[in-house]
Amino acid sequence: MTTCPNDHLQTRFARVIAHIDAHADRQLDLAELAGIAAFSPFHFHRQFAALFDITATRYIRLVRMRRAAHSLLFRKDIPITDIAFDAGYENAESFSRAFRKLHDQSPSDFRSHPDWDNWQAPYAKLQQVRRDTMTTTALNTVTIIDFPETRTACMDHIGSPARIGETIQRFIAWRKIHHLHPSKHATFNILWCNPEDTPADEFRMGLAVATDQEFSDEDNKKGFYSQTLPAGRYAKLRHIGSDQTLGDSALALYRDWLPQSGETPGDFPLIFQRIAFYPDVAEHEAITDILLPLA
């Protein structure tokens, strides 16, 4: 099969995307990015825009602003000034002007009253570029593991997947109160249904943290309940990269690996174990173990 010349360009510029994601917290110039692509600095910016339908400068700005938005929503202990500096702005005022232009809200208003249905809309182009360039998870890395019985505190998100961030906020706040840090207490998502064929108002996903703590009446009122993840044999596929391609990896596990393996799925939903979190790590370095229970 003849390789399309455009494939070589995609590969070279995919390295640029990964580099931007990994180093968006420092100054990046086009000459540096052109060198990573092994492309003429005189033509790099035009080729980038031709491939991705967005300029490199705009892409970098969106990467920084999306990470800032995540920090505002899910890292509430970080001051807005620090988030502004991390996003490359000299002061909170200039960051606030740029953020308001993108989200039609100030950073403080966004942090306290986000528009959950639409807050990711400004980053649609960014997400498409990442989906097109991030490496597909290799199915030859699937392993069979013995998973131990794990008791968790679980909170269900029920309703539109677009609003799951609202539930994540409450989940993070609760586990902070109970000192259940991710470095010591594993984090899981339980996929009670398939978002692709479930009406938005019926969508259900469990957010769970490993713990043996007992629940108070107040915990129950907040929506937490005890959920035990059953022990047994599981197929594990490590997904590295954006959540935008997490569903693709899970689909490949069912479509390509499972029929060839001779295995049969067990009587429990698919589980995502979150190992490394965005925005604590660059999005292309986020790690999620996809766990498929086996009979």
Rank of each mutant, 00 (worst) to 15 (best):
W116S: 04
F224K: 02
Q273E: 15
S160V: 00
T245I: 11
M205F: 12
D243N: 14
L237H: 03
R175W: 08
Y59M: 07
E218V: 08
Y225I: 04
G266E: 13
Q213I: 03
Q260L: 14
G247S: 06
V281L: 10
A208G: 02
G266K: 13
P114W: 02
A252H: 11
A84C: 10
I275G: 14
Q105A: 13
P5M: 06
V16Y: 07
L229F: 01
Q105F: 04
I78R: 12
D217P: 08
A49F: 07
T211C: 03
A282W: 10
L237F: 07
C193M: 05
I80K: 01
Y123T: 07
P265Y: 04
R67E: 14
R97C: 05
A235H: 12
K76L: 09
Q10I: 05
R58F: 01
F95R: 08
P279S: 00
R170V: 05
T264Y: 07
A208N: 01
P265N: 04
E283C: 12
Q27K: 10
F42D: 13
E93A: 10
P122K: 10
A235D: 11
A37F: 05
A34N: 11
P161F: 08
Q127C: 05
A31L: 05
P5C: 02
P161D: 09
F203L: 09
H45I: 00
L237G: 10
